[in-house]
Structure formats: C-alpha cells, structure tokens
C-alpha cells in the first residue's frame, strides 16, 4: 500500500534548548523519510543532535517546531493515552544504558510491555520465553539484570523492545556501553531481526561498525542532515576499513 511506504516521516523538526543566555538549536529543520523495513543509522558526533532526533521520533520529547509522522499519524495530535498506545505497540526502544527494571527478572522485563498491552499473563510469559530464546538467553530467564553481563542485558532489552511486535525499533547508541565483540553481536542481532521480522530499525550511533549493516546512513551535523548515504555508496567507503559483511 503506497500510503504505508514510509513508517516514519519528519518535517521541519526544530528543537531549541536554552542554557542561560545561550540558545542552542539542537535540531534545526530536519526532514527525514524512513521506509518500512529499513535499517537506518543516524550518525554524528556527540552534540550533533542525533539523540534529540531519536527522542523526537520516539515521542519521548516534543519538538518545538515541525512534526513527526508515525505510520502517517502526526504524533503531536495524539493525546496521552494514544501516545502510550503508540509507545507500547508500535515502537520498541533500546537504550545505551539498557534501562532494564532492576527488580525484575529477564523474563519479567520482557513480559512487562505485554502487561501494559493488557495481554493475559500466560500469553505474555509464552511470548517472553519465545523472545528470550530468540536472542539467545533461553537459559537466563530468571536472572536479574545485575546477574547478567552488559551484552546479555542489551539482549534482554532487545527482546523487551520486540514484545508487542512493534513496526519500529529505536536504538539509542545500543553498543555505546559494550565492548567491541559484544557490540558486534548486538549489531548482528539487530540486523537479523530487521531481515527476518521485517522490523524497521532506526539507530542513533557513532559506532562505525553499524554503518556496515545499514541500508542508509543519515549524517547529522549541527542539528541538520549533512548527507544521506545509500548502502551501495557506503560499502565503497568503509568496505576496506570495517570489512565486508556479505
């Protein structure tokens, strides 16, 4: 269906932070269309506005100007309950700091979104086990976050993000707190989920390993899109540097 070609669209996004006298335009007119099923990386140095863009797309913060459309719905038009529904069902979030609920086990963390969605308990648990198996943690169901390594915690977070079958996964520096090898595994897992489940992955990162698996890379600088590169062009540039993946 043509109307659903784009899963996320932003129009003229502006976000302004005032620090005392200084006015910082963290986003300064960002127009971005993201296709369904794409694996897209938002790259840029710290302070470039990529996290701000991430937060705006995820409905975690309101832009000062412009709009974000998720599945052709303007997010600014949603009331609190509609926004909560969107966060629960349409978007899965992954954070640099994992953000698991510390008092809950891996399984309970993954099940929590299904609780908010109103799914029956046994159905939620079944889904949770299935997802933890998928991310390779079937043997760690009842461990708490403190009993898991960073990579394992991020896997739980990925399973949790998938709990309600979202159409978008938003990942904010998902490899930022992980070592090189674990980071690669997480990227690999995200890519696999993107291919096999068809979920759109949008990832804010400055990890160059991410570039290699992305369909498109959006470079942000000073709150604006500096350039958007298609995969074909990227391979040539970073191919030798980071190694071919296929």
């Amino acid at each position: 269906m043509a109307a659903h070609e784009y899963v996320v669209r932003t129009k003229g996004l502006v976000k302004i932070y005032t620090m005392g006298e200084e006015v910082l335009r963290a986003l300064n007119g960002v127009d971005l269309d993201i296709r369904r099923g794409e694996y897209i990386s938002i790259m840029g140095p710290s302070g470039s506005g990529k996290s701000t863009l991430f937060n705006a797309i995820g409905g975690l913060d309101k832009p000062d100007e412009g709009s974000v459309f998720i599945n052709d719905v303007d997010m600014a038009q949603l009331d609190a309950r509609e926004l909560a529904y969107l966060r629960c069902h349409t978007i899965g979030y992954i954070f640099q700091t994992f953000n698991l609920i510390p008092v809950m086990t891996a399984l309970e963390n993954v099940t929590l979104p299904t609780v908010f969605a109103g799914a029956p308990t046994d159905q939620g648990i079944e889904r949770g086990i299935e997802l933890l198996n998928l991310v390779g943690l079937g043997h760690r169901l009842h461990h708490r976050p403190t009993q898991l390594s960073g990579g394992q915690q991020q896997r739980v977070a990925i399973a949790r993000a998938l709990a309600n079958n979202p159409s978008i996964i938003l990942a904010d520096e998902p490899t930022g707190n992980l070592d090189l090898k674990t980071g690669e595994e997480i990227i690999e897992l995200l890519r696999l989920l993107n291919r096999e489940q068809g979920v759109t992955v949008i990832s804010a990162t400055h990890d160059y390993k991410m570039v290699n698996v992305s369909d498109r890379v959006v470079w942000i600088r000073d709150g604006k899109i500096a350039k958007i590169e298609e995969r074909a062009n990227i391979d040539i540039q970073v191919g030798q540097m980071a190694g071919e993946e296929h």
Partner: peptide, 16 residues
C-alpha cells in the same frame, strides 16, 4: 500526509 487518517483499520487506538 493527512493528520489523522479516518479510514477503517487506521483508527488510532488508546492505551488500555
């Protein structure tokens, strides 16, 4: 893009 598509199946749902 329409602000709020009113077509069937596109109805915006509220969190329970």
């Amino acid at each position: 893009v329409p602000y709020r598509p009113s077509g069937a199946g596109d109805k915006i749902q509220k969190q329970i």
